[in-house]
Design a protein around this nucleic acid. Structure first.
Lengths: 243, 243
DNA sequence: ATAATTTTTTAGGTATGGCTAAATGCTACT
DNA sequence: AGTAGCATTTAGCCATACCTAAAAAATTAT
């Protein structure tokens, strides 16, 4: 009742989990986009996953899907496998951080529970993948992530890069080049007038760096609390759910 | 024209290659047994693989299949991946030699060419998997294997264990227990009368050890040439083919 | 409120790769 | 040479998971 699940099922659960982290329900269209299939295919699959025993998600017509606790458990297993594999490929096999995602995407469906555990042991239970995304714990709790997109920071505010999106290898190479990587301390400068670009200062040299909004919204930071200011973004517990 | 191939296709090519190592053609029934599917399914699949472009095997009704050079290339890729993974799981992740086969069986379909190469680099291009089976080289040549089943040795003959079958974890645990592992030097003693068991002497102590024929035929050894005796088993080049 | 637009669902099809049952072809024996 | 027994193939079917095109529902704009 818990070991199996086709690769397609695993892929659906994974993206539904991730979509639900932002919007509380995952719509047919969003899932279709993420998986690169047509919305019609998604409708069919959602029905199947909702009707399976035990149900992996709950689905109501025209209102998308939410995972059941069982579905979420499976989703977290895949996500843990994926992120552990990314760490492993990066740390042990010397993969660049823009190469790990694609490879892990295929391997995540093939590794067994014991193999996942051995990898985690070897790496001493890492907490983040190479892009800074939190790794669900051994007992499948998703650590809280209180980061916000860089472009939502208030000008003048200091922050620390927590994680970056791992989807686009080109973006990752660019970010590595400009050293905008997890752990980087930065300050958001005043915006350019008539521009959707963002100005930052960070690193050893005192240069201001300008990045496009398309990039900025893929970089997630933890704002530093400023004295006397109520936290605009209090650390909300994300991805928690009662089981 | 060479990257893809479904998992089922890969499984078929792999077992056809292995069956053809012994018998020059692989029969429908043998393939079905190895894959755990019905002969009817095999017939259907062989037709498909023979009709594909490029053809991966040649198939004639009632006469089974042989791989084409292209099919053999793919088979050797999978076998190389499988055996590299076994080494990796064993050497780097501390798997026992009876655990590696099953895990590698799933992973072999998921790893990319580059990942295979990185693993081979990390392990410094190993020549044998943990059970002693030869690993196809980087350019997909299968190294010659001139070993013979232990039970085909002439009584009194000395030999060195080359490899053991990796199929049965229980057998592997047993062999590890009695230290009948690749590299072991041994002498075949006179057979027991009225018995299909085999008597051996090896290891530090001078004890004779008795193993059943069922075990003996799964252990492959390289006989030592005895002075004045023409080699009964000359080293034949196995698995070679012009491309 | 109604119309236009977008999203989602339904209906009907395709390709893979399995299965069973029945028919056919091979092989070995008398 | 005929036939029994085994291996193989054919025929017809099932499940998964995808697709397209058309219908229906929801959302947005007028």
């Amino acid at each position: 009742m818990s070991g199996l699940a086709t690769q397609a099922t695993q892929d659906y659960l994974k993206v539904i989990y991730q979509v639900c982290e932002d919007h509380s329900r995952a719509s047919t269209g969003q899932i279709a986009d993420e998986l690169g299939v047509t919305p019609a295919s998604v409708t069919g699959m959602l029905k199947k996953l909702a009707a399976s025993e035990p149900a992996l998600l709950s689905y109501r017509k025209h209102q998308g899907a939410v995972l059941t606790p069982e579905g979420e458990r499976l989703a977290l297993q895949i996500i843990r496998s994926h992120r552990l594999l990314e760490c492993f490929l990066h740390d042990t096999l010397g993969y660049a951080w823009d190469e790990v995602h694609e490879e892990a995407e295929r391997l995540e469906h093939a590794i067994s529970g014991p193999l996942g555990r051995r990898i985690a042991d070897l790496l001493q239970e890492p907490e983040h993948d190479p892009h800074g995304a939190p790794i669900p714990t051994r007992d499948l709790q998703m650590p809280a992530d209180c980061s916000v997109p860089l472009d939502e920071l208030t000008p003048g505010q200091d922050a620390c890069v927590k994680r970056v999106s791992d989807r686009d290898p080109q973006l990752l190479r660019y970010l590595a080049e400009i050293s905008l990587i997890p752990g980087t301390e930065l300050t958001l400068l005043q915006p350019l007038p008539f521009s959707d670009h963002v100005r930052l200062r960070y690193g050893g040299d005192n240069e201001a760096i300008i990045i496009s909004a398309r990039v900025a919204c893929q970089v997630f930071v933890i704002p530093h609390q400023r004295a006397g200011e109520a936290g605009k973004h209090d650390c909300l517990i994300a991805g928690e759910q009662l089981t």
